[in-house]
Amino acid sequence: MNAATDRQWAVRDAVLRWLLAKVTEGYRSPILDPDVIRETVGWAPSPLTRDEVADASNYLYREGYVTGVPVMGIGIPRPMLTVAGRRVAAAGGSLRQADLCGPRGAIIRSMSMSMSMSASASLRDLCRQQQRSIGVHQAARASTRDGGVDRCQ
C-alpha cells in the first residue's frame, strides 16, 4: 500500500475512535470537526483536513458504521455510531481488517494470512449470499408493512 492509502485508512480509524469516545462521553451525534478529532484521538501525523474527515465519514456511512444525513462536500456533519460501528470501534483494530462481509454480515476478524485464495473466494461468495438473503428477508418484512403477509416467521 502507498502512504496516501495508509493515511486514508488511518483517518477512517481516527473518526471511528473519536465517535466512540464521544458516545462514551454522552454525545449521541457530535459535530464532525477535524481539530476536535485530532485532539481526542491523539492524531500525530500532519493535521487532518476537512476533506479527509468528510471522505472518512462518507465511507463509514456507506459501509454502515455510522448513520446520519449526508451533505455534499461536508460528509456526515453529525454522524451517529451504528451497532456495527460501535462493535468495530470497541474492538480497537483497524477498519482495513475489521471484516470481510461488511457490518451487516458476520464480522470476521484475525484471519490467518495462510488462507488459500480459493478459501478466501469461497468465503467472499458466502458473504455475498448472506447479504442477498438478508436483503430478501428485509424486502419481505417491508412488504408486510404494506398489508402483505409476513413470510419470514
Rank of each mutant, 00 (worst) to 15 (best):
N2K: 03
A3V: 08
A4N: 09
A4W: 08
T5H: 05
T5W: 00
D6V: 11
D6K: 14
R7M: 02
R7H: 02
Q8R: 15
W9Q: 02
A10M: 09
A10W: 03
A10F: 04
V11S: 00
V11T: 01
R12W: 02
R12T: 04
D13I: 01
A14E: 01
A14G: 02
L16D: 00
W18Q: 07
L19V: 06
K22S: 11
K22D: 07
V23I: 05
Y27T: 11
Y27E: 11
R28H: 08
I31M: 11
I31C: 00
L32T: 09
L32K: 05
D33C: 03
P34F: 01
P34K: 02
D35H: 06
R38S: 15
R38Y: 01
E39Y: 03
V41W: 08
G42S: 14
W43M: 12
W43E: 12
A44S: 14
A44W: 06
P45V: 11
P47W: 01
P47H: 04
L48C: 08
R50A: 12
D51L: 07
D51Q: 15
E52D: 08
E52G: 08
V53P: 03
A54M: 01
A54S: 10
S57K: 05
L60G: 02
Y61P: 00
R62F: 07
E63N: 01
G64N: 03
Y65S: 07
Y65K: 05
Y65D: 05
V66Q: 05
G68L: 08
P70R: 14
G73E: 04
I74L: 14
G75T: 03
I76M: 02
I76D: 03
P77N: 04
P79Q: 10
P79W: 04
P79M: 10
M80Y: 03
M80K: 09
L81D: 05
T82Q: 03
V83K: 06
V83R: 03
A84N: 07
R86S: 08
R87M: 10
R87A: 11
A89F: 02
A90M: 00
A91D: 12
G93E: 05
S94W: 10
L95A: 07
L95R: 00
R96T: 10
Q97D: 15
A98K: 03
D99R: 02
L100V: 14
C101Q: 09
C101I: 01
G102P: 11
G102I: 02
G102K: 00
G102H: 08
P103S: 14
R104A: 13
A106R: 12
A106G: 04
I107T: 15
I107N: 00
I108C: 00
R109N: 08
S110K: 10
M115Q: 12
S116M: 07
S116D: 14
M117R: 15
A119P: 04
S120D: 11
S120W: 12
S120A: 13
S122V: 12
L123I: 12
L123C: 07
R124L: 13
D125H: 15
L126R: 14
C127K: 06
R128P: 04
I134A: 12
I134P: 02
V136G: 03
V136N: 10
A140K: 06
A140S: 10
R141D: 08
A142Y: 09
A142S: 10
S143T: 12
S143E: 14
T144D: 03
R145Q: 13
D146R: 14
G148Q: 09
D150C: 12
D150P: 09
R151W: 12
C152P: 00
C152L: 14
Q153C: 14
